[in-house]
Design a binder for these strands. Structure first.
Lengths: 241, 241
DNA sequence: GTTGACTCTTACGTTACGTCAGCCTTTACA
DNA sequence: TGTAAAGGCTGACGTAACGTAAGAGTCAAC
């Protein structure tokens, strides 16, 4: 079979077949004297395999390794690929959440002054208070409120400082020393106004991303801060388990 | 502020700033005599915007349009971007489903002979029969079974022919004439063994992808056939509403 | 023999930077 | 003030997986 036919059968372009030939990924079984590529039935089966892995998101390079080494650990490759895909999906979900939030707010702009960006973090008018009560009980919330009132704006400002610090390091890997140091301060701070087990701390991090209202507010200190904090808090919990 | 500082503050690399300058996406407010880039606070705000849209998955080209045309319809752009992201997520979900299915089967190979690929479509040993009963009622299922028994292998073969035909055109757009013609035959066929409203038909298509057992079996005729059929059936229903 | 359908190779374009390489400026310290 | 470290600049190639011509040869049919 010549290129056009194979292309029609498999749904790829002729150029793609040329490309795979160049890469050594799929060499035609035969070549005529004038250089025409002639594919065999086996070639077709190979192509099927290639397209299968391609559909799973593997790169051509990876596919070549997988298919050329018969001893290659395919299951392992599939497993790591699966993880990658899940990660990609989380990222996509983050993006979708952000974009829908932006649309809901009816504007495509993020013109925030420094003031705007750093205000709105007043726990004394906590929109999540009811939720917090449901989740951690009235006692804990009341105690936290009392402490916050007691210290007033001072705690506020302290918290803002920590948030700003976190925003500064949010581009670093979540397990970097700086990140862990900053998130540690956050843990310390939380424990000055309440009592958080290390598990509760990690759970709080998950919520930052799971609940878009948290995400939105936290990201006011910097895009991506919420998901960074989740990762860092997760890591912190892991290290201090 | 010079490049390094801006880079540290924003979390992008110096190279990225150079790149944005080249593209005309973010020109520094000032340039020293020797050619050093000097960024202003406004530049920083612009960069924030750029990074915001970038985080939403827009291309730099799109971002440039959005930010340079103050009259640009941002909401519209956000909306279409949202759709794109959702589409991407569906694709990712498909990939994840397929890869997990493959792992579950404990093999990374798709070595199927033509026979293997095209068998296993025996409705008389229907693994989904109970589900079908739950969904469409005993009467309909019994009737279908009776008809299938009545005509035996003939219907089987007819169905296989249709599947093969669908597999052949599955790389074409789902609203192409060939695709719609083939899916129409499928609709005709289904109505020779039962009665399917056009809505039920579309719903069936959704199930092909939603339920991995269907997906797996259908994709035996060709990778991606199930999701192609869903799209084509959706389109068919739309056109014949 | 001519025409139309195929095929081949070569090579640039795409996206968003990463990564040198070679060279110039500015800053800090002795 | 001399020198070295730190920072800055401009090329320019590399990446992934083909799409898209361009120019030219081949094959089958009328």
């Amino acid at each position: 079979m010549k290129v056009k036919e194979v292309a029609a059968l498999s749904g790829v372009s002729v150029r793609t077949l040329h490309h795979y030939d160049e890469l050594g990924l799929l060499k035609p079984a035969e070549t005529t004297e004038v250089g025409y590529r002639v594919y065999s039935d086996e070639n077709l089966a190979e192509l099927q395999q290639i397209l299968f892995y391609r559909a799973l998101g593997f790169s051509l390079k990876q596919i070549k390794e997988i298919l050329s080494n018969p001893s290659f650990n395919r299951l392992e490759a599939l497993e790591s690929q699966r993880q990658m895909l899940h990660q990609k999906r989380s990222q996509l979900d983050d993006m979708i959440r952000t974009i829908e939030q932006t649309i809901k707010e009816g504007k495509g702009e993020v013109t925030m002054t420094r003031e705007e960006r750093f205000k709105g973090f007043d726990f004394s008018e906590n929109p999540y208070e009811q939720e917090a009560r449901d989740r951690w009980g009235d006692g804990a919330v009341d105690e936290t409120n009392k402490k916050l009132q007691q210290f007033g704006g001072e705690q506020q400002e302290k918290m803002n400082v920590i948030y700003r610090r976190l925003a500064e390091v949010r581009h670093l890997p979540s397990n970097s020393e700086e990140a862990q140091q900053a998130i540690g301060e956050w843990y310390q701070f939380l424990n000055t106004i309440g009592t958080y087990s290390i598990e509760a701390f990690a759970g709080l991090g998950e919520m930052y991303v799971a609940d878009e209202r948290f995400t939105t507010n936290i990201d006011k200190f910097g895009i991506g801060l919420a998901s960074f904090m989740r990762d860092a808090m997760r890591e912190y919990a892991r290290q201090n388990n």
